[in-house]
Amino acid sequence: MILAASTGGQILGSIGTAGLGLILATVFILGTRPNSKHPLNANRALTVCLVAGVVWMSAGQIWGVPDDLLSKALTALMKTQALGDIGLGAVSIVLVVIAYMVNLKARTAGYLGITMASAFSLTGGGWAMLTASIADMATGWAS
C-alpha cells in the first residue's frame, strides 16, 4: 500500500506549488469567462481562489504579490483606525458574511476568495489554522 501511495504522485509528473498556483489561476480565469465550456459558479470560484491565494503565498516569488498587496492594505486599514477599533477578526467575519449574503458573480467571488486567503492568514487563531491546513494539503498534493 505504501508503494502505491508513493508512486501515485508521479503519475502526472512534478507539479510544485508554483505549478499548482498556475493550474488554479488557469481554472479561475477560464472558468469565469462568459462562454466557458465548464463555468464556475460563485461558490466554486470562491473556493478555487481561496485555495489559490494560500498556494500563492506558499509558492512565494511573483506568486506572493497579491498577498503582499492585500496584507499591506489590510494592515494600513487597521493602523489608521479610520473606522474605529476594528480588528482583523472582524474583517475576516465580514468577508465570510459578504460571501454568504451577497449574490456575487463568479469572478467577483474569486477575488473575494483571494482576499479571504490573505485576511485569514493575517488574523491568526482559527483563521490562520484554516489557511495553514489548506496550505499543507495543497503543497502535499503538489509535491
Rank of each mutant, 00 (worst) to 15 (best):
K79V: 10
I93T: 06
G60F: 05
N103V: 15
A82L: 09
S71T: 09
G89A: 01
Y100A: 14
G89Y: 06
L70W: 02
D85Q: 15
V102S: 12
A82G: 11
L74E: 01
M57D: 11
Q61N: 15
N103M: 13
V97I: 10
L104W: 04
W56N: 10
V91I: 07
W56Y: 12
S71D: 11
V65F: 03
M78N: 04
G60A: 01
G87E: 08
A76L: 02
T80I: 09
V94L: 15
M101D: 11
N103R: 11
M101L: 14
S71G: 10
Q61L: 14
V102F: 13
G53W: 02
I93L: 10
M78P: 00
D85H: 15
V54R: 14
Y100C: 15
G64F: 08
I62C: 04
A99I: 08
V91R: 00
V94N: 15
V96A: 11
G64W: 06
L88K: 03
K79M: 09
I98R: 01
I86W: 06
G60K: 01
M101K: 10
V97K: 12
V94H: 13
A82E: 10
W56I: 10
K79Q: 14
L83Y: 05
G84Q: 11
I98E: 00
V65A: 02
L104G: 03
I98F: 00
K79F: 02
G64L: 08
I62L: 11
G89M: 00
V97W: 11
G53S: 08
G60R: 03
I98P: 00
G64R: 04
